[in-house]
Design a protein around this nucleic acid. Sequence first.
RNA 1: GGUCGGUUGGCCGAGCGGUUAGGCAGAGCUCUGCAAAAGCUCGUACAGCGGUUCAAAUCCGCUACCGACCUCCA
Length: 500
Amino acid sequence: MKKHQLKVQNSLTRKKEIFEPLHDGKVGMYVCGPTVYSDVHLGNCRTFVSFDVIYRYLKYLGYKVRYVRNITDVGHLVGDVDTGGEDKISKKARLEQLEPMEVVQRYMNGFHEMMTVFNTEKPDIEPRATGHIIGQIKMVQDILDRGYAYVKNGSVYFDTLKFAKDYPYGELSGRKIDELIAESRDDLKGQGEKNNPSDFAIWIKAEPTHLMRWESPWSVGFPGWHLECSVMSTKYLGKHFDIHGGGNDLKFPHHENEVAQNYGACDCAPAKYWLHTNMLLMNGKKMSKSDDNSITPQQLFTGDSKHVSKGYSPMTIRFFMLQSHYASTLDLSDDALSAAEKGYKRLTEANKVLQAMQPDPAAKAGDLDKEISDLIDLAHAEMSDDFSTPRAIGRLFELSAKINGLKGGQLNKKDLSAETLELLKTTFTDFIYTIFGLKDEDAGGSDNGVTDSLMQLIIDMRKTAREQKDWGTSDKIRDALKEAGVQLKDGKEGTEWSLV
RNA sequence: GGUCGGUUGGCCGAGCGGUUAGGCAGAGCUCUGCAAAAGCUCGUACAGCGGUUCAAAUCCGCUACCGACCUCCA
């Protein structure tokens, strides 16, 4: 099979580029993780599912990937430093009368559980900001030494004006420093200690009531939010690494300032490729914790929300997410979810049929063989084109029609070579499980095949009834099973069943 | 207000200058004892108005909506 060149949409250049890792065969990828001050919501999950697929696909292509995804457990403020911003973790701890680390542990656990439910692979390193305070202090010092920051009353601010003279500040987010300054003229809000409104804190002096605090050369305080990512990506992936990812909403100011800090500290650009996932919408608006336009994964599973008519399984939701491109917005709706649910079932059923299929001994490669090989090749090409899961899924559906056609006798198995059948099988397995990270949910598993035996017995009894043209009995069996949620499927080679 | 992005058939969602995306729903046909499942076929979508081109959903301009970022958010 031809190997397709991987292309990625680089936010930094706003172009789709051929992916070339800095070190042959290896990829370093840093993704901004969650701030663990409350339950994850579905929007977070979408981003991490997107990067999970990217991680999986890179590995599938044979790269040795180091995937670093941080946990922000300090430094992320509510509001601005100057306007009395409070650390999110600290605030939650104060409100719930918990230790800050208790808050962190609680929501980090919840986050991990949800990531498991969505079947995402664990990152190779999951560093936490509080574990890297020394590194952060060091970087603040480096930035100060190189003249891109200044100290004010124990806090340290990044000097964006100075920086912008030497480097292109705003490159990533498309901001212009002049406009950022100009904006402030209209905005009469107090600038506080900052020399310029576009400056940002890299070390913050802690108020006496502040729970999380560390000694530093400038004050007892805590690091600025953007700093942790600069420090931890550098520590684990090097000064210059391959991929930096995160949600679209982090582009500015978070990622922009991260870049500035890296240049500021060591004159080096952190990532070669910046990948940004787009937002999950609900009712046409960004799903957001701040307003109530948000649904928790749990609510979606149980259907306990005004936004859905019923519950949807984690894999249905994962599949739903993969049906759109990671860089497009995705609008969550009940209709879309139930369509995804049926589509997902169609795909998994086709896969079951496929895996049970045996090649025809007299098989010869014909037109059908080529059609199928071409579709397989296309599916790979789609994935290599900026991880286009929706198009790859489209190809899999086209292949599903072929599979069902072979099974139903509309297509002839003689036209499909054993090699291509085998390739088709591995393709489905690779895509569904390895790359898309979907997993079987209805596998009852623990009843030692009792269900299968029972079903076989019932199917046999119905078969006998049908042979005797006892339609009353056979239809009663069929209808009663349907009522119980079991779908009988009469085919050329006998009857099969599946859960509805 | 500034910057950027979007507007595709009943619903979701690809598409980045010429070719059927795909899924769900719907219609017809085949198969079936009747169904279901499955297969095949079909609906003549591209916000509006201009322009460029042999050719535009796709490029350019204007208009209208919608959204994101600019302040914490994946």
